[in-house]
């Protein structure tokens, strides 16, 4: 796995950790605990996205925080994230910037999302996670 500071893929969106925060493998019929998906990256990029503090503070309550911390760690950007959110996070600009970075700027280009319960892998190729199920899993 490697991280390229300015992705050569240009400004195109790859899998952001915000997208990852929404994804689950609970859709597999037998799976009840498919969240959060483990990220096994082989290529990660960081791109520059304009910082919008209002956007981030409104996004935060919708985020599953432990899942984000785990995801950030698995792509090598977990440093500096607190274990839990404080109450007045909207006033903590440092935190908002850090969250902005991991939610919006860190992107996974290649790798796998792995179901925590079954180990089923969902490939991420060119930044696109493929979450289609085999007919047997529906």
């Amino acid at each position: 796995m490697f991280t390229s500071p300015h992705g050569k893929g240009g400004k195109q969106d790859k899998m952001k950790l915000l997208t990852h925060n929404m994804l689950t493998s609970n859709i597999i019929k037998t799976v009840t605990n498919g969240y959060p998906l483990k990220i096994v990256p082989t290529q990660v990029e960081v791109k520059t996205v304009d910082f919008n503090p209002e956007f981030i503070s409104r996004m935060l309550p919708k985020i599953d925080w432990p899942a984000l911390c785990q995801a950030a760690q698995s792509v090598g950007h977990g440093e500096g994230l607190p274990e839990a959110l404080t109450e007045k996070y909207e006033e903590d600009e440092m935190l908002l910037k850090k969250v902005h970075h991991v939610l919006m700027q860190v992107e996974v280009l290649e790798g796998n999302l792995v179901c925590p319960e079954t180990g089923r892998q969902f490939p991420i190729s060119s930044g696109i996670p493929n979450m289609l199920l085999n007919e047997d899993e529906v």
Binding site: K11, Q12, D13, K14, M15, K16, L18, T19, N21, M22, L23, T24, S25, N26, I27, Y35, K62, D64, F122, S126, G127, I128, P129, N130, M131, L132, L133, V138
Partner: peptide
């Protein structure tokens, strides 16, 4: 996948998924 690839080349976050089993956790949208 081919339509999603077109999206991706136009700078949007996307994934391949089926409306019959949307791989998004409940209540997040």
């Amino acid at each position: 996948l081919n339509l999603v690839k077109i999206c991706e080349s136009r700078d949007f976050p996307v994934f391949v998924g089926d409306v019959m089993s949307i791989p998004i956790r409940s209540g997040v949208c």
